[in-house]
Write a protein that binds this DNA or RNA. Structure first.
Lengths: 195, 195
DNA sequence: CTCCAAAAACAACTCCAGTTGCGTTATGTG
DNA sequence: CACATAACGCAACTGGAGTTGTTTTTGGAG
C-alpha cells in the first residue's frame, strides 16, 4: 500500500514552514534577494531538503503562487458597473501600494518574467482573476448597462492594464486618479461596444 | 591639461565592444542568463575591466538601455487617428514578436523590475516614447477628430497598456486582433472625452 | 620622440549558491 | 509494537561569480 500522507505529517509541516518563509523573504528582500539558503534558515528546514523538493528559487515561487491563487478576492458589488470597475482597479492599485502585499506581488510579476514555470503559474492566477472579475461585467449586461456584444474579461483587462503598465513597464507612479481614469476608459470603450 | 578622449581611443573601443556583446548576450540568453564573464569573453575585454567600469550586470543593462533610448522610432502618419493608433500598437506588438528584438526588449523590462538604476533608465525611455507618440493625438485634436480636453500621452498609455499587460503580467499571447482592439478601446475612450 | 597618467590586462584569491553521498528520523502499516 | 521506507538532516565538496593588488599597455601632451 502506498503510504498516505496526513495533513499533520512531517512533510506537511516542512512544506508549510518553507512556504511561509518564502513569502516572508519575498516581502523583505524581493525576488532578486530570494535565496534558498535564507529560506532554509528562516524555516528551520535544511537547505538540501529545499533543493530536493522545490528544485530552487523558481520552485519556491511557483509553489507560493499556486497557494496565493487559491484564495478568492472580494469582487465589489456596488450596483453599477461604474462603481464595480472602479472598485476592482482600486483594489489592484492598493494591492501594490500596500507595504505588506506590494513587495510579494511585485516579486511574483518579476519572477514570472524570467522563469517559465512561474509564468505559467501567474498565467493561471490571472486567468482565475479575470474570470472572477468578469462577473461584474456580466451583471452589467444583464442590467442593460452594457451591450451584450462586449467580452466581459476583456473589459477587465483593459481596465487594469494601465495600472500594471505604469507600475512594471513605464515605472511611473500610479495615483488614485490614474486608476479611476483607467476604469472610466474601459467603461467608455465597453459602452461604445468596441470591447 | 586634461587629456581629451577621442572617439577612436581604446576606451571607446572597449565600450562599444562591451555594449555590442551585452546586446548579443541578452538576445541569446535573456536577462537571467546575462553574466559579466560571458560579456567579457564575447567582447574580448577582460572581466575585471567590465566590473570596474560597469560595476556588474545592472550597469551593463542601464548602459545598453540609454543607448537604445537615443534612437527615435517611426511614428506613423496615416491621416486618421484610428490608423495612427493602430500603427503604434502594432509597432509595439511586432517589436516583442520579432525573434531578434523581442528577447532584448523583454530583458530590459525584466531588468527594470529588479534593478532601480535600470528602472530609472526604462522610465526615461518610455517618457521619451510617450512624448513622441503623443504627436499623433495632438494632430488628431488639431484636425478636430478628438476633443481638446484629452491628455495626448494618456491616450498612448491606455492604447499600448493591454499589450504589455498580456505579455509581461498575465502571460497571454497577443494576437493582431488583440492589439487592434486595444487601440480601438483607447480611441473610443478619447472620443468620449474620459482620457 | 619622450614620458606621464589613465585605463586595461593579468593572476590569485574569497565567498556563496548549488550538488552529492550517506547517515538519521519519522510516518504509516502489518 | 516493530519494521520498512520515504523524507529529512548533515558534512564535505564543486564551480563560478565577483574582488583585490599588481603589472602592462596605450593614448596624447609637451
Amino acid at each position: 500500500m502506498e503510504p498516505r500522507k496526513r495533513p499533520g505529517g512531517r512533510s506537511a509541516r516542512v512544506r508549510d514552514a518553507v512556504r511561509q518563509a518564502t513569502l516572508a523573504e519575498l516581502a523583505e528582500h524581493g525576488y532578486a534577494g530570494l535565496t534558498v539558503e535564507n529560506v532554509a534558515e528562516r524555516s528551520g528546514v535544511h537547505k538540501t531538503t529545499v533543493y530536493r523538493r522545490w528544485g530552487g528559487v523558481e520552485g519556491l515561487i511557483s509553489d507560493a503562487l499556486e497557494l496565493a491563487g487559491e484564495e478568492p478576492w472580494p469582487i465589489p458589488d456596488t450596483g453599477s458597473i461604474e462603481g464595480d470597475l472602479r472598485g476592482i482597479v482600486q483594489l489592484v492599485r492598493n494591492g501594490f501600494d500596500d507595504p505588506e502585499l506590494g513587495p510579494v506581488s511585485s516579486a511574483f510579476v518579476a519572477a514570472a518574467i524570467q522563469d517559465p514555470a512561474a509564468a505559467r503559474a501567474l498565467h493561471d492566477f490571472f486567468a482565475a482573476r479575470h474570470e472572477q472579475s468578469a462577473e461584474v461585467v456580466r451583471r452589467a449586461i444583464e442590467r442593460g448597462e452594457l451591450p451584450d456584444v462586449v467580452d466581459p474579461s476583456e473589459v477587465i483587462r483593459v481596465a487594469v492594464a494601465p495600472v500594471y503598465y505604469r507600475l512594471f513597464v513605464a515605472h511611473e507612479p500610479v495615483s488614485e486618479h490614474d486608476a479611476d481614469r483607467a476604469a472610466a476608459a474601459a467603461l467608455a470603450a465597453a459602452r461604445a461596444g468596441v470591447l
